[in-house]
């Protein structure tokens, strides 16, 4: 019985800059993410974690090697294909990146609206439901300025998960949070991921998260040097 493959990376190389300044950031990176897995990507700063995340997230063009996301090859994909694929992903950033002019519910609705019109109330109901799942049902009409750091990051989690994406990409989502909020956010990601069959790729240097991972990949100087399976 083969597990469903969400991401399949083979021999990925990546360079930044050009000419004399050209510098290789990734060397022959290969990795596979299966449906429902919670994978943590670790490594010191400058090791290439973020580059991997932006490549998998269709935010950069693949230069060399193969990267298959949800069955589609990204090497040579058009910008329109990349934009289309991004709609099937959920992003969580180090900063919450909520829109200051939108309420918590409206911010979450932005995660749904990308899939089509909002002419009826179902999107709003879905957003309020998602906020309930992250424990913010009392705060749906608050503007981000009136929420705490942890609450804002939870809104961001709700925004990323509301459209049930196949893959959630998270970049140090706990860096700006205290210990309790951090644990809460990661548990939330994991729990909601389980419930919806979402695959998660999370970049961090935060050791507090490791014991919750199914698999830990360690990156150093652009190469994967260690793979640890925990499930």
């Amino acid at each position: 019985m083969g597990e469903e493959t969400i991401v399949d990376v083979r021999g990925l190389n990546h360079w930044f800059g050009s000419g004399e300044m050209r510098k290789q950031a990734l060397f022959d990176v290969s990795l596979t993410l299966h449906r429902g897995n919670f994978t943590v990507l670790m490594g010191p700063s400058g090791s290439g974690k973020t580059t991997v995340l932006t490549l998998v997230g269709c935010l950069r063009a693949v230069q060399d090697g193969s990267l298959r996301l949800l069955g589609q090859e990204l090497n040579g994909a058009s910008e329109a294909q990349l934009v289309g694929l991004r709609r099937r992903l959920g992003f969580i950033f180090q900063a919450h990146n909520l829109h200051e002019s939108l309420t918590a519910a409206q911010n979450v609705m932005m995660g749904l609206q990308v899939h089509g019109g909002l002419s009826d109330n179902t999107a709003e109901q879905a957003a309020i439901h998602a906020l309930g799942l992250v424990g913010l049902s009392e705060r749906t009409t608050y503007l981000p300025a009136n929420l705490s750091g942890g609450q804002k990051q939870r809104v961001a989690v709700a925004r990323a998960l509301v459209s049930s994406p196949a893959l959630v990409l998270a970049d140090e989502p706990t860096a700006a949070l205290d210990k309790d909020s951090a644990a809460e956010v990661v548990d939330l990601l994991k729990r909601m991921g389980r419930a919806r069959g979402t695959t998660t790729l999370l970049v961090t240097h935060d050791n507090r998260i490791l014991d919750r991972a199914d698999r830990i990949l360690t990156l150093e100087d652009g190469r994967i040097i260690h793979v640890e399976d925990r499930s």
Partner: peptide, 15 residues
């Protein structure tokens, strides 16, 4: 003023 938010929306797949 909203470049960051717009970049976020771009990442989410807004064209």
């Amino acid at each position: 003023d909203h470049l960051r938010e717009y970049a976020t929306f771009k990442a989410m797949g807004y064209g």
